[in-house]
Each structure stands twice: as C-alpha cells, then as structure tokens.
Design a binder for these strands. Structure first.
Lengths: 146, 146
DNA sequence: GGGATTTATTTCGCACGCGAACTATCTATG
DNA sequence: CATAGATAGTTCGCGTGCGAAATAAATCCC
C-alpha cells in the first residue's frame, strides 16, 4: 500500500530533474553552455533559422522563456537574432560558428547523460518511463483545461 | 530502435517536471503556496521544529535553497524561524496556524496530482518509474563523483 | 481604406535553486 | 586557554521559466 510511495512521485520527479540539471551544469567542458542552452543549440542544429516562437514550441517554452534564453545565448555569441524578411514582428535564430562548435561538444555530453539515464534498465522499462513522461505532458497541460 | 527516443529522456524529464510545477502553481487555491513550499509544509507536518539543514536535506536542497524558501514562507507567515536553544548557529522551523491550514489544503491538491500521476499506469509500471527516478538520484550525485 | 483583432516578441516582477564566498558559532586539539 | 577547523546559515550573482501586461506588426472585416 503506502500512499507514501505515490506521494513521493512529485518529489522524485523534481529531485531527479534538478539532480540532472546540476550534474550537467557542473560538467560543462566548454564555456558555460547549460542544459537549456544545448536544447536550443540542438533545435537550431536541425533547423537553423527557425522563428523564436517555433524554437520555444520545440522546447516547450513560453515567450518569456525563449526570449530570455535567446538573450543569454546571443550575449554569449552562440546564436544570432536576424529579422525575418517577410514579417516585421518576427526574428529568426541562427547558429554562430561558436554555437555550432558548442553544439558538437554538447553532443558528447549528451551521450554520457544518455548512458546514465538508461543504464541498468531494460529497453522495455525505459519505454515505460518515456511513455509515462510523455503522458504527463497531456496530463498537466498548459492551458487551464480541467 | 531510434537513439532519438533515448536522447529525448533528458528533455522529457525536464518538460514533465515543468508542466507539473506549472500546473500546481496555477491550481493554488490558497494564497500562493507553491509546490516547493508545500514540500516544506509536509516536512514540518511530520517533524515540526526541524533544523533548517535537516529540512533542506529532506527536500534535497542546498543551504541557499532552503534559506530562500524559508525566507519567502516566513514572509508569507506560513512558518516561523526560532533560534535553537542549544546551538547559537542553528534555527528551527515551526508551522504557524496559517501554515498548518495551508498544509491541509495542499494535501487535497496533492491527492489530485497523485491521481494524475498514476492514472492509466499499472502499479508495476509506476514502480518502474519510481525506481528509475530514485536511481537517477544516485546516477547524478551531488558531489562531483565520477 | 481603416479600425478591430490576432500574432510575435519583449519587459517586468516573481519563485526557484545553484555555486561561491562569507559570518558566526561550536568543537577539538595542542 | 587559545586557536584551528568544522558546521549552520546567509548573501550574492546567476540561469531558468512563469504569468501578466506592453509593444509592434500583420491580418481580417466592414
């Protein structure tokens, strides 16, 4: 029984996430590229020149979140903001050479993280975990849907 | 077998955590008690008068984390800081009546969250998830152990 | 065409939690 | 006893991301 085990899921999720973030932050070989920042680097690695809103959607960030992330990464010279030629409101994001290099380094770190995230679990178990995490997205939606 | 699915675990964990936090924050019936704050309320509900460091350990927070949390909750009149009679450096934390009431309300919200966290998954699957989350704690330790 | 509405992004204030450095107290050791 | 070291908390600056409100450009509709 122990309702306590279930009670703990909220907490366990929180702790696991923070531990992972902290671990990644501490192991940033290249100058200060954080986990969130590598996320954006990967998005741009696949689709350079996306709109900020698209990048935000890909990372599940709202407007203020992506805006701040872009600010910091622009200041760090990892990406560039260039006006969209067709839409005066929009900005497109482009990797700088430094950003491209940082992305390559981030991939190595990600490989290490992946090993740690799956080690000791069967593929079926990892599938359960992934399915659970994905399900939580629809279970705790952004809007205030019931 | 898509290495991409594994790649996503970092991201999925991050998103699930943020979605849950956001959802809880939006559904705070009582004045502004956040998820982190309910965590401390529950700790005090079980052991009123703990040292700040003990509370931090229970919530996996470092000194600055628990210190700030206590600051905000003290300002909100949810808890009280009282000097430890035996140790001039230490402070013990106590629930205020308002804090005790907020804790009761938080429990209702937690029940709702728990339902959403487990609904649609078998007990065995939830066990896998819980085991995975716990394992991640040792996999991404606080110290810089390799 | 022009006013209302939608859309892209920014700004503000906030909560959270980290690492590093600091202060104050307690404890151990010579 | 004095002093060195350990321990409890605080403070600072930072990155992250949210909600709400503002700005500016695009679009829709009469």
């Amino acid at each position: 029984m122990s309702p306590r085990r279930e009670h703990r899921l909220v907490f366990l999720l929180n702790v696991a996430q923070r531990r992972l973030q902290r671990w990644m932050a501490a192991r940033t070989p290249h100058s200060g590229v954080t986990a969130a920042q590598s996320g954006l680097l990967f998005v741009l690695g696949q689709r350079d020149g996306v709109l900020m809103g698209e990048a935000g959607a890909a990372l599940d960030l709202g407007p203020p979140g992506i805006s701040g992330l872009v600010d910091r990464m622009t200041a760090a010279n990892l990406i560039e903001r260039r006006a969209d030629p067709d839409d005066g409101r929009a900005w497109r994001l482009w990797l700088t050479p430094a950003g491209r290099a940082a992305m390559a380094l981030s991939k190595a770190r990600l490989a290490d993280v992946n090993a740690r995230l799956t080690q000791g679990f069967t593929e079926a178990e990892i599938d359960v975990v992934a399915r659970w995490l994905v399900t939580m997205q629809s279970r705790f939606p952004k809007g205030e849907d019931e």
